[in-house]
């Protein structure tokens, strides 16, 4: 083995070692959650711990998805008369989907139109707005929570999904707008002019030429917005209070209340919460990279 070959091999081994370590650190909690969620109660605290359950069971998932309360009667904490948090799981799931899609739809619509206007029309302040909006994104959202809550009280919207939709729009819009602005800027205006000459109206130009070209940017902004809304705990915790209206993040925290924590159930809930985002990510990650890279490199 020559010197050069030795070093090439060493370098390759070292990079694989680092990559494996990182992958392990990132994936282990997920794998552990999946493993725990499939274990019967008796095995969760078994020593030594098992990674692959000896007697795998889907009971936890069944309980969450069908909301069978009797399963919990033995150990699960009862929150209000005769109900357990797990009963509401599907309800919360639907709530989370509603607020995530709702806020993302609004954010994307506004930010796309705003970015188009900011990059295509000349008016006072159009150059500073994107930077201010980015600045807005840098302010921690906890600062907005209570003022926004008071606004929701005024609007009589507290404890409604709409309040959460509006709240999420407030925290996702600035970054979405900045992202779309960077993306729109990279779309050459000539292709719009070419379409105008080809015979398209302004609206046709926007629909048939601008939007399809901006799609990677739109997808990137949408993924960002969905992740923020789906994972948020703070706004949901402050804005909502009735069990029916909770979102997944807030609801699943109720599993902790009381003296007994059903870890199997909790882990199953975590896995189910992760699945939609994971699928979304895998389906769209190609566009995500294109979207985030758009501002930097002119096509």
């Amino acid at each position: 083995m020559t010197r050069i070959e030795f070093w090439t091999l060493t370098r390759r081994l070292a990079s694989y070692a680092v990559l494996s370590a990182v992958t392990f650190i990132v994936c282990f909690p997920l794998v552990w959650a999946l493993s725990t969620s499939l274990k019967p109660k008796s095995e969760i605290f078994a020593t030594p711990p098992t990674l692959i359950p000896h007697a795998a069971t889907t009971e936890n998932y069944k309980a969450l998805l069908t909301g069978r309360p009797q399963y919990f009667q033995s150990g699960g904490q009862q929150v209000t008369s005769g109900t357990t948090p797990a009963q509401f799981f599907t309800r919360w799931f639907v709530n989370s989907v509603i607020v995530t899609l709702g806020s993302t739809l609004i954010s994307i619509t506004i930010s796309t139109l705003a970015a188009y206007s900011l990059t295509r029309f000349r008016y006072w302040g159009r150059t500073v707005v994107p930077y201010f909006s980015l600045l807005g994104y840098m302010v921690p959202s906890i600062i907005f929570v209570f003022p926004l809550f008071l606004v929701m009280v005024q609007l009589n919207l507290t404890d409604s999904l709409l309040s959460l939709v509006l709240g999420y729009v407030c925290i996702t819009l600035p970054f979405c707008m900045w992202l779309m602005w960077a993306f729109m800027r990279s779309i050459p205006i000539e292709i719009e002019e070419a379409a105008l000459i080809d015979g398209a109206s302004r609206l046709q130009v926007f629909r048939q030429v601008v939007l399809p070209t901006a799609l990677p940017g739109i997808i990137a902004a949408a993924i960002f917005s969905m992740i923020v809304s789906w994972n948020d705990y703070l706004f949901g915790r402050v804005f909502l209070n009735s069990l029916d209206n909770l979102t997944l993040t807030v609801g699943v925290m109720l599993f902790f209340e009381g003296t007994h924590v059903d870890w199997g159930l909790l882990m199953a809930a975590s896995v189910l919460m992760t699945v939609p985002m994971a699928i979304l990510f895998m389906a769209l990650q190609r566009h995500l990279v294109a979207g985030f890279g758009a501002g930097a490199v002119k096509g």
Binding site: E190, E193, L215
Partner: peptide
Amino acid sequence: PRDRNIAMVFQSYALYPQMTVRRNLGYG
């Protein structure tokens, strides 16, 4: 522009990036 019955070739070509050549040609 669309009512002038003109056609224009741009310096940057300004082709519609998401359309095939066939759709680019036929867009007008």
